[in-house]
Nucleic acid binder design. Structure first.
Lengths: 301, 301
DNA sequence: CTTGCTTTTTTGTCCTAGACAAACACGATG
DNA sequence: CATCGTGTTTGTCTAGGACAAAAAAGCAAG
């Protein structure tokens, strides 16, 4: 297992750091320093790939690469919580029950987790389940992942199982003929969908007609889909890991592509730091989303 | 809407063609020829992006780029069927019923499609539903998409709705304590999951313990997950669009990362042309998958 | 005519190294 | 304390060259 080494394409795939960035870091900071194969191409050892992934993780949290690369690897784990602190305080409420759920994931007990969540869903009803269980749980998984107490694959397991629960719940709702037609999707390179699903669940409950197109739609295709479905609203989501600098340009382009009367609503942790603009409506919380729906209905009554 | 132009990163995102390839084609073939902005950077008009996506689509089908770029745009649509022809013949069987389902997607009538599929599922049972409905339907959607009679977003709609159905069906099955523990996932950059879900459904029916980790797991994380879950089998899937040349190296690496006793099973249309090797077991049909499971059980009884 | 091997063409990826602009951090001024 | 420069950090783009892997074409032998 130690003989495995990664070429630059594999490192890009596994860390999400572009080849350009990898080469630039090597030039500027002297890390990573891969060995070379017989063709002079870079060979990264698994150890450096792991450190790179850790660095990427902390960068998505807001740290600067220069500092991170200067930090010795063994101290990296400690840098976790940063913008988490403010959020953690005001939600210590029913931590107790939630951490039981987290513990099930941590034990990799998928069956028990699913059962516990099903019960909670039955007890709380879908709306409160989304707002009081799924949303805080997702936040906590994010934090645990950030501070290293959750592995990537544990976060994936959580996401996958929870997605299934939400989709299942949504499927039982009747398609609402009363609300606006809302098209749910994300741009290419953006694969996260859990937040979008939460909003879809809430909107479906409100009787909106939800059209889920999955993730990763090319922009021009989003335009075609909106036209074909005569969607009144296009709802997009960006995760925190999505390259922030691309977002404004991307929204501007999409705005040009979409019919004028189609609203563009954008949410997810990736847009928290994006400047407001007339291209799209930025939505940062689930409550915002519901409020936006209410407002839309008033304006189109 | 005509004022929208794409920079090279946006084109890479939307077409799946790497920046290197885009620049290379410009150098070698003289297409695409983007205009330049004030910084000398490439600006691709929407029209060229569309043509590029069409070319990429045909390349995934086996065509050569040199020919495609030489072909005038208006003739591109006609080049569709190629390796499809052989397959279409032997399945003209119950085309009738299936094409009704396809028509519902084409009309963007999500509700009716879901209802029709639910009925079929109830009538056929999960195994036959997967083998006789979902699998051929997916193949046909692929073909329709290839020959241009399905838009990308229609294929997305089909995929999303069908994924939901399968997941829902899987959720109702008891977790099997008898079979092997099978970990289902895909590598980064590979977002397609429908084929994996079909296999998961069949395996779950057979009483195997299925652990769905969603898509896009870094290789080292797949290794950790396999260890943590004590998985006996890791099942991966590659779509036809995944860069073929990366697959063998990738499987070799993963083989080095995984514990020796963990089997590596790989399927999907992307592996059809991959050379056989001792790194992984290549599985090309649903029947193969079931056969592999049976064999595994015999060998570990 | 087909099968299998070798050569040529096609094609993608990697390389170096420089330029620049956008984002950020810091300090000064209102 | 807030707002506005200014310097530093950082990512992305550009250029063309080199090379190897894949596909096609040519050719030989069964």
């Amino acid at each position: 297992m130690n003989t495995a080494t990664f070429n630059i394409a594999a490192v890009e795939r596994d860390t999400g750091l572009s080849k350009d960035v990898l080469r630039m870091w090597e030039r500027r900071y002297g890390f990573p320093v891969p060995s070379r194969d017989s063709n002079g191409e870079r060979c990264y050892p698994a150890e450096q790939v792991d450190r790179l992934r850790q660095i990427k993780r902390l960068m998505d949290l807001g740290h600067r690469p220069g500092k991170l690369i200067a930090t010795p690897p063994e101290e990296l784990g400690g840098l976790a919580s940063r913008r988490s602190t403010s959020a953690t305080v005001d939600m210590a409420a029913d931590d107790g029950e939630l951490s039981e759920l987290l513990a099930l994931i941590k034990q990799h007990d998928a069956a028990a987790y699913q059962q516990a969540m099903q019960q909670r869903l039955a007890r709380q009803g879908l709306q409160r389940f989304v707002q009081d269980t799924v949303a805080p749980l997702t936040r906590q998984v994010g934090e645990k992942w950030e501070d290293g107490s959750f592995e990537v694959f544990e976060e994936h397991l959580y996401t996958e199982l929870t997605k299934r629960l939400l989709r299942q719940a949504i499927a039982t709702l009747p398609g609402g003929p009363r609300g606006p037609r809302v098209l749910f999707t994300s741009v290419p390179e953006e694969a996260h969908v859990l937040g979008l699903l939460m909003v879809e669940a809430l909107f479906a409950l409100e009787g909106a007609e939800c059209i889920p197109l999955g993730t990763q739609m090319p922009l021009l295709e989003i335009g075609r889909a909106a036209a074909a479905h005569q969607a009144e609203i296009v709802a997009l989501s960006f995760s925190g890991a999505f390259p922030q600098r691309q977002i404004p340009g991307l929204l501007h382009q999409l705005r040009l592509i979409l019919p004028e009367k189609t609203a563009l609503w954008v949410g997810g942790s990736g847009v928290a730091r994006v400047p407001r603009s007339s291209d799209a409506e930025l939505i940062t919380t689930l409550d915002d989303a519901l409020a936006a729906l209410t407002t839309w209905r008033l304006q189109h009554a």
